[in-house]
């Protein structure tokens, strides 16, 4: 019978030299890697090209205006008077209103789905929230313009008449004492756009939070219950601290989406180039609706300005998104998730 293993013969007295270990890919594998990595590099090139081209085109306008680009609120490129101050403030306001409304709703809904809802309802609600995230923005825009606007105007009027003394809720030209005054000063405002965007942002935040809340270690939940905690007590000491990273990350993701929203905002607002913080008042603006409004009749120079505005928006959403993924990855719950 043969021995199965054989020792390589090494000459007596000579020290054994280590064998070089190299692996060489066979030809088919090399071709495969060529195809796959070239597509990776192509995607990289494409994405970098978008960024570089936008920056290159935006350079003219930024150079012409300098820092004034960020402090000017008008948009009159013919007179070399243009900047993003007003549209940027408008974008942030709309996004803030959206997140302020969507945040409590999404946290509570995610908690309801994970902790409270009976099993038969849970899967339905999960599908529903996912579906809300997939509904096209133009549909939300139509809904907001034709259905929600008429309803929210009443709420705007109410907020204004009770909290009008806060500068944020002031409305110029409104007369809260007269019930017959026109509602038009309350329409097409940043608040209404924010409410509509909130409906689009809520499911995005809710999906991330639900994912995180459902990963809470069962031992910790049961420990809290075993110590006599109520359900809300358990949520407060176990679920919410565990999911904090996911909650912040999800909120930021929603914020990024709200900042970039174009068509729903464009349908609702009446554009205006003034820096104003009065969210309830008619007239608002955002960077993306500025681009959508002006691109068609833009000259080369104005186009450069639009690119610069878009680039500013991109920079903001980029920071928001990276902060979000940093928070998610860093949190205890997010270590294994890929959100």
């Amino acid at each position: 019978m043969d021995t199965l293993t054989t020792r390589p013969s090494v000459a007596e007295g000579e020290p054994a030299t280590p064998q070089p270990l190299t692996s060489r890919r066979i030809r088919s594998d090399r071709a495969f890697f060529g195809i796959v990595s070239s597509s990776g590099v192509l995607v990289l090139a494409l994405m970098v090209a978008v960024g570089v081209f936008l920056s290159y085109q935006a350079f003219d306008a930024l150079q012409a205006r300098g820092l004034a680009f960020f402090t000017t609120s008008e948009w009159q490129p013919d007179r070399n008077q243009f900047g993003v101050a007003a549209v940027l403030v408008g974008t942030l306001l709309i996004a803030l209103v959206a997140v302020a409304i969507a945040l409590p709703l999404s946290i509570l809904t995610a908690l309801f789905i994970v902790e409270v809802a009976p099993t038969w309802l849970r899967s339905t609600l999960v599908a529903l929230v996912d579906l809300m995230a997939a509904v096209p923005s133009v549909v939300y825009g139509l809904w907001g313009l034709f259905l929600l606007q008429g309803q929210v105007v009443g709420v705007s009027r109410w907020i204004n008449s009770w909290f009008g003394w806060i500068p944020f809720f002031k409305v110029n030209g409104a007369d809260p004492t007269s019930p017959l005054s026109s509602a038009s000063v309350y329409s097409a405002s940043a608040f209404i756009a924010g409410v509509v965007v909130a409906m689009m942002v809520m499911p995005i935040q809710c999906v991330v939070m639900r994912e995180v809340f459902s990963q809470v270690p069962p031992g910790e939940r049961e420990g809290a219950f075993a110590l006599g905690s109520t359900r809300w007590g358990m949520i407060r000491v176990v679920t919410l601290p565990f999911g904090r990273g996911g909650m912040i990350g999800g909120t930021m993701l929603g914020l990024g989406r709200a900042l970039g929203e174009t068509i729903a905002v464009l349908l609702i607002i009446s554009p205006e180039f003034v820096i104003k913080f009065r969210v309830l008042e008619v007239g608002a603006n955002s960077v993306s609706s500025l681009i959508a409004l002006r691109y068609s009749e833009a000259s080369g120079f104005e186009l450069s300005g639009l690119m610069a505005a878009g680039l500013t928006l991109f920079a903001v959403t980029l920071v928001v998104n990276f902060t979000a993924s940093w928070f998610i990855a860093r949190s205890r719950s997010g270590a294994s998730s890929e959100a």
Binding site: V50, L54, A292, T317, F322
Partner: peptide, 9 residues
């Protein structure tokens, strides 16, 4: 990073 690109851009 590009998932953050606003669609209008």
């Amino acid at each position: 990073a590009m998932t953050a690109l606003p669609s209008i851009l």
